[in-house]
Design a protein around this nucleic acid. Structure first.
Length: 324
DNA sequence: TTGCAGGGGTCAA
DNA sequence: TTGACCCCTGCA
């Protein structure tokens, strides 16, 4: 069958009875194809686990799946239906966008040419707002393996088990907890951290530390309706203003706000400036004395509306040992 | 073994 | 603009 221009085939594994779909010729999506590793290991998501070179397990919208590519350039999603493609994967993998023009647009110099050759098969994911928000609050002053562990801890401790008749391999098999659950279970204030959380064995010293009350307080604002993200508005207003609006959430500064805006699919013209992006831009385009503001200004002017895509590709390229 | 720096930052003074 | 913050890891 055809869905949104993609040929989809549904199959069923006779032994496991798991429903699978094949999305044909996703490698034709762009000149750089569809690269699972560049997509899942470019720092934009935390719930995907590598099973082998071309196979990843993960959870999206409470669906535990295994995703792989084959030699024909097809994408196979185990434990999914054509309906899921329509409702989840088409948007999640940004399949409505043709990357050919975007790739051409960001290749403005030799560095970006190499970055795109290396990582241009990575797709910018459109993830759920709350999961992206809480994951990036956790990311502050943290490293990726630990962020992944903390996100999984959060799901294991507070998320509902995923209802599935399958034995699909996934991280923990738990949903990402709602803001309502998080606001009720994590401590609100720093002084409550030691007592309430430890006493309940919830977010004691093994958990997210000072980020814990940030998660809880932001969760409370969301669950009480004190903060209601207006995606249409956030995507259309000036990016400085959009950033500012998200920064009212505790634990959300400019960097986290940028990540949420980009990775939850609200806007693609934002290049989050973390230590690696800063290091890269300083080395390739500016100099050591450049401030975060200088760097943000530069990426905004240089990459324009496609700054988010450019960031994903050069970040992964730089992080993979190709910069220094 | 121990100490220290740093990690995809944020917040308050 | 600066230092503290929770916790872990790598390194000397």
């Amino acid at each position: 069958m055809q869905i949104n221009g993609f040929k989809i085939t549904e199959t069923k594994n006779k032994q496991t009875k798991i429903q699978n779909i094949t999305i044909h010729n996703v490698s034709d999506l762009s000149p750089n194809g569809f690269d699972l590793q560049a997509t899942f290991e470019s720092g934009q998501c935390f719930r995907w686990r590598k099973l082998d070179e071309k196979k990843y397990a993960g959870i999206v919208k409470n669906k535990a799946v295994v995703i792989s590519t084959n030699k024909s350039g097809d994408l196979i999603i185990e434990n999914s239906t054509a309906e899921d493609f329509q409702n989840i994967w088409y948007s999640y993998f940004d399949f409505s966008k043709d990357y050919s023009d975007i790739l051409k647009d960001v290749v403005k110099d030799e560095f970006m040419k190499k970055a795109v050759e290396f990582a241009g098969g990575g797709r910018v994911l459109n993830q759920e707002f709350e999961e992206t928000l809480f994951s990036y609050i956790i990311s502050a002053q943290n490293n990726i393996p630990r962020i992944k562990k903390l996100v999984e801890d959060l799901c294991t401790r507070f998320g509902k088990p995923i209802k599935s008749n399958s034995n699909v391999e996934c991280f923990s098999g738990f949903e990402f907890p709602s803001s309502d659950i998080l606001s009720k279970n994590l401590c609100q204030a720093k002084d409550g951290f030691e007592n309430k959380c430890k006493a309940n064995n919830l977010c004691g010293e093994q958990f997210a530390g000072y980020r814990c009350p940030y998660i809880s307080r932001s969760a409370k604002m969301l669950s009480k309706g004190d903060f209601v993200p207006n995606y249409a508005n956030l995507s259309s207003i000036d990016q400085d203003q959009a950033r500012k609006e998200l920064c009212v959430l505790p634990g959300v500064g400019e960097k986290v706000a940028d990540c949420v805006l980009l990775y939850s699919g609200i806007r693609k013209d934002i290049c989050p400036i973390d230590t690696w992006v800063a290091k890269t831009i300083k080395k390739i385009y500016l100099d050591e004395s450049s401030s975060i503001k200088d760097i943000r200004e530069f990426t905004r002017n240089y990459f324009g509306n496609n700054a988010g895509y450019a960031q994903l590709w050069f970040f992964y390229y730089a992080r993979s040992g190709n910069l220094i």
